[in-house]
């Protein structure tokens, strides 16, 4: 049972305290903890909204969701007071979504499985654009195995090299704004969809991929 909402200020205070408590946990690695504050640059999300009809955001939070999307899913239940939906893994997704999870291998694998499941089973057009870090040793990227084993549903659109990869400035901090350690990974952009969905997207906007490529110039795009 959760306590009733009292005021906006107390809810935001709770949001910040939960966020800070999560950053203090000793169970996760430093890389995973930092990834809670790593936010994709706004132009990437905007490009997907404009070119690929993305309107939903999975694995977001009240502190980093993009207001350009019509809805977002958070892992924190109390975020529903800020308009969030709770628990993306318990939601049947349809439509076009963007997903930038925390950099935890188990979590990323689960996101990939979840996206695959609904891409396969959903009768409505369903696609998920995942932004996942690609560790230098590709063998330890657990989600890579799923991409490799399901070429019918998973398409690697491209990647952002580590030298060009940047993150947005964190929206919240305590005392001092975050200072991330230098990242040593590139960022994969993977679309999980059916062929029909891709075709429908092309039919609706024939040059959507070219527009997307122009809008995210720092990425290296695959020839699909």
């Amino acid at each position: 049972m959760s306590s009733p909402v009292q005021c906006l200020a107390s809810e935001i205070a709770g949001l910040l305290q939960d966020h800070q408590a999560r950053l203090r946990t000793s169970k996760a690695s430093q890389l995973t903890l930092e990834s809670y504050s790593r936010i994709l640059p706004q132009h990437i999300s905007a490009a997907l909204q404009q070119c690929a009809m993305v309107s939903k955001e999975e694995m977001a939070s009240a502190l980093n969701f993009d207001p350009g999307n019509s809805s977002y899913w958070s892992e924190r239940h109390r975020d529903i007071v800020f308009g969030a939906n709770y628990n993306a893994f318990a939601t049947k997704f349809t439509g076009f979504s963007i997903c930038h999870p925390v950099y935890d291998d188990t979590r990323m694998l689960k996101c990939m499985q979840h996206s695959l499941r609904f891409a396969m089973c959903s009768e409505l057009p369903t696609a998920t654009f995942l932004f996942l870090p690609n560790w230098e040793n590709k063998n330890i990227n657990a989600y890579r195995a799923l991409v490799r084993d399901n070429p019918k549903y998973c398409t690697t659109l491209g990647f952002i090299p580590k030298t060009k990869l940047t993150y947005a400035v964190p929206t919240s901090w305590k005392g001092v704004q975050h200072n991330f350690s230098n990242h040593t990974w590139s960022m994969d952009t993977i679309a999980v969809w059916k062929k029909e969905v891709k075709q429908r997207l092309t039919d609706a906007t024939p040059n959507w991929l070219q527009t997307l490529q122009r809008s995210i110039p720092e990425a290296v795009w695959e020839k699909n």
Partner: peptide, 11 residues
């Protein structure tokens, strides 16, 4: 207990 950008607060 913390700060956030005014833009995020208005969101």
């Amino acid at each position: 207990i913390g700060m956030m950008t005014p833009e995020r607060f208005h969101l």
